[in-house]
Design a protein around this nucleic acid. Sequence first.
DNA 1: CGACCGTCTGAGAGCGCTCCCAGCTCGGGC
DNA 2: GCCCGAGCTGGGAGCGCTCTCAGACGGTCG
Lengths: 341, 341
Amino acid sequence: MTEQTTGSRPTLEAVAARAGVSRATASRVVNGGAGVRAPLVDKVRKAVEELGYVPNHAARTLVTRRNGAVAVIIAEPEFRIFSDPFFEQQVRGISRELTAHDSQLVLLWVEGPGDHDRIARYLGGGHVDGALAFSLHNDDRLPALIGRTKIPTVFGGRPAAGSDLAVPYVDADNRGGAREAVRHLVSLGRRNIAHIAGPRDQTSALDRIDGYHDVLVDADPGLFCQGDFTEESGARAMAELLDRRPDVDGVFVSNDLMASGALRTLRERGVRVPEDVALVGFDDMASVVGTTEPAMTTVRQDVEGMGRLMVRLLMRLLNEAGGEAPASVITPTTLVRRASA
Amino acid sequence: MTEQTTGSRPTLEAVAARAGVSRATASRVVNGGAGVRAPLVDKVRKAVEELGYVPNHAARTLVTRRNGAVAVIIAEPEFRIFSDPFFEQQVRGISRELTAHDSQLVLLWVEGPGDHDRIARYLGGGHVDGALAFSLHNDDRLPALIGRTKIPTVFGGRPAAGSDLAVPYVDADNRGGAREAVRHLVSLGRRNIAHIAGPRDQTSALDRIDGYHDVLVDADPGLFCQGDFTEESGARAMAELLDRRPDVDGVFVSNDLMASGALRTLRERGVRVPEDVALVGFDDMASVVGTTEPAMTTVRQDVEGMGRLMVRLLMRLLNEAGGEAPASVITPTTLVRRASA
DNA sequence: CGACCGTCTGAGAGCGCTCCCAGCTCGGGC
DNA sequence: GCCCGAGCTGGGAGCGCTCTCAGACGGTCG
């Protein structure tokens, strides 16, 4: 009757006109319909249906100052790790939870320090309500950058101690998981339990080392070996360990990839697992854990759940704008017993 | 002088006031400064600088109807393939080119048919200017879905013939690359050239088969073997081939992963490469190609470039709203000669 | 039967920006 | 010296939506 507006998308105005109510009432209905009497609600809904009305996002954002979008910041070195199913799972969790919150995932890919300006501008530009980032390396300057933009942010993984900004994060209980793994080896009667550690610049590796030492307070430094989370480094470390301490009878490896390397070395040297050496990994990475011989005992972390939690934490941050930053979350780990220990 | 607006972000109004010009002029400067005299441009720029002004995206979108965002639609089965560096590279190319166009990448993760409604609503909701999608499987109903939303879209990979919607796409010259590979084997004097093909529901695999037949019109069907793009299937196919046709002296494999499997079989059987059997792969996938023994001759496609091209095509689509859909692009491939053929 | 109150509804004022158009300035041509 | 046009600039009207606030409506209570 009023406007025909062919081609262009219908506006709230049109819906209101068709339903015979005011724009305000139509708006109320579209946003849940609280405080509007049933007959009117129905009329408006019908109009929405008939017109195929979809709210204009920009207009809504303009007044509410909410975007319904969250940035996921991925730094170049991390993206490589997309091959790491770990990361993929976490992003999947994030994506799912974001969908549940009617929010979109805007991927911000940082190629290097040269990109920091662009990212800062974007983050500061109010395009997104909040950000999700991952802290992988101690030397990463991203956390500081993000801190400066003041945008609500949640980290995946505990940021290095150095960055003193109090950002909430979600992390697995690396230390507790490590403790459980080592205790399990102890309970198996193992006396000389070694640790093949991950890189020193990642808090997850550090925490797992701490967990190891929590249980084995006086562990012989000779039983400690440094790796870098790659399969190859695990194999090498195991060889080193075997040479140095032939009496090693248990080993807790900081991740499954290294553990699989260690297993390879063990096999090549004719060491029986778990009879001679019991081995526990970390991550419960499906692609590794299923294929090793013997099947690997490892510590599982709910990676997808961590991704979801990151989103929930962020949403809470956004809703309690005034309040304090919510506490970080440490998700529990579970020991998955298989054949290797 | 006028408004102090502490805390809140400065508006164009504030910039204009500080520069002593009108909002309109300030807007012109912010958007390039065409048609504004130099001294005013400087004044406005200075004001922008001092105030730390960042344009409000929502307000701009509201009037221009441009979002500066593009959806990248990733269907679940594909995401698994993130471990496939192929996909990662393509997304990297997309991300880079999008950045160059000042556009954002909104990741739309489709979990299954149940998600189609949500995706359609989002795409139809004017949140993004266009979409980028990948066509991997013939049976995928995503292309049809996207076609219905009317949103400008570019596909990565040629959609299956079945979907008759004329969407522009970017694809490598699979057929031409295959021809080149086979011709190379022919030029090496090989007489019995086999083909290990990829899955029938992917156009890339189909096109490579066609390329093989282009050169070897009367190829013995016994020299054809079906694989599914996995390493394992390549190994199996090669074994089959060797049993069936011991006189095979050349093989063109539809991707590097299968080729690496084939190479393994060849080695296990004591067949010398390239002396007894010359082998050519496809993709030039760094993680495979570098590690095989002998180093693999293969067909390279510029995957990152394809990602970038997808974005450029989309941008052209957006700018020539009225015009015809731009033609699809087939990017050239190059034969990379190494040791295996 | 009138005063009062709670519940709904609608008018209207923006949110911050772009862009059309009117108007002003200034230089050049006659 | 005057007129005209080119080149700039600013006023103002929205873009589509939310949200405040006041008014309308219909009961209820005294």
